[in-house]
């Protein structure tokens, strides 16, 4: 529903969204550069590549938040608290929303624009990863049925980022207000279709549970020394367990 029905705030949220094609080009270039150097040292693996992709996506999420309306008004200390609490949700949402908006059935669309057919994902990947993929697919399907669009995903990202339950925020009231405003904009955008709105919010609790599972999975791989070090992904994982 473009045009007069679009709430002003939804338009503002959409303007903050990075351009998908630019992101694709940037991350692909970075991955290629890294792979070339890995090949020289003979230590390339699919898992390392996925970690790098996740790390680069995380960087783009931080950049999105940093330059976004409302968030840029916060002090860095509050910005950090909010991001530490929701980085994995935003990361999973990024992957899921890409499937819902642009993906094809039976394959996983990566941030680089490449498609990986599910038959190429190894069954021996382990029970946690297997469960993550299965539950992720179910969530994609639910959001697909709900026909969630770019506008709604843009609102949802702000709902997640401005979490008033985060402890020790200096500007707690401001965060709470933005959260309520984002919720209001989403409800207005869904044309006060409460059923749709409620289903969408239910999907968010599934997203949160998925992100916890994803963090556990990454922590395990990290403990067994499989994660590349010195990147944002690792820093976020450490901050959570600290």
């Amino acid at each position: 529903p473009q045009g007069p029905k679009m709430p002003q705030l939804v338009t503002e949220f959409l303007l903050c969204d990075p351009d998908e094609l630019q992101l694709q080009t940037k991350i692909s270039a970075r991955l290629q550069q890294e792979q070339t150097s890995w090949r020289k040292h003979g230590n390339t693996s699919t898992f390392r590549l996925l970690c790098l992709m996740a790390d680069q996506t995380l960087l783009s999420i931080v950049e999105w938040a940093r330059t976004s309306i409302f968030f840029r008004q916060l002090k860095v200390s509050d910005q950090m608290k909010l991001l530490y609490s929701c980085w994995s949700e935003l990361l999973i949402l990024d992957i899921i929303s890409r499937q819902v908006l642009y993906g094809k059935e039976g394959s996983l669309l990566l941030v680089t624009g490449e498609e990986v057919h599910f038959s190429n994902i190894p069954f021996h990947a382990g029970p946690t990863l297997y469960s993550l993929i299965q539950r992720g697919l179910k969530l994609v399907e639910k959001l697909h049925i709900l026909k969630v669009d770019r506008q709604e995903f843009a609102c949802v990202k702000f709902l997640i980022l401005f979490n008033p339950d985060v402890k020790d925020l200096e500007e707690h009231q401001f965060v709470e207000r933005v959260h309520e405003q984002a919720k209001g904009a989403l409800l207005e955008y869904t044309l006060c279709n409460l059923g749709h709105f409620t289903h969408l919010l239910l999907c968010l609790s599934e997203l949160r549970s998925l992100s916890t599972l994803a963090e556990d999975y990454l922590c395990c791989r990290n403990l067994s020394g499989e994660m590349p070090c010195n990147n944002l992904l690792i820093e976020m994982l450490h901050a959570k367990s600290a």
């Binding site: 910005q79 950090m80 944002l232 820093e235």
Partner: peptide
């Protein structure tokens, strides 16, 4: 613990005007 937060702080503190 502070040192662990270095990268995120750096990214958020970045000054675009420079």
């Amino acid at each position: 613990k502070k040192k662990d937060n270095a990268l995120l702080r750096y990214l958020l503190d970045k000054d675009d005007t420079v």
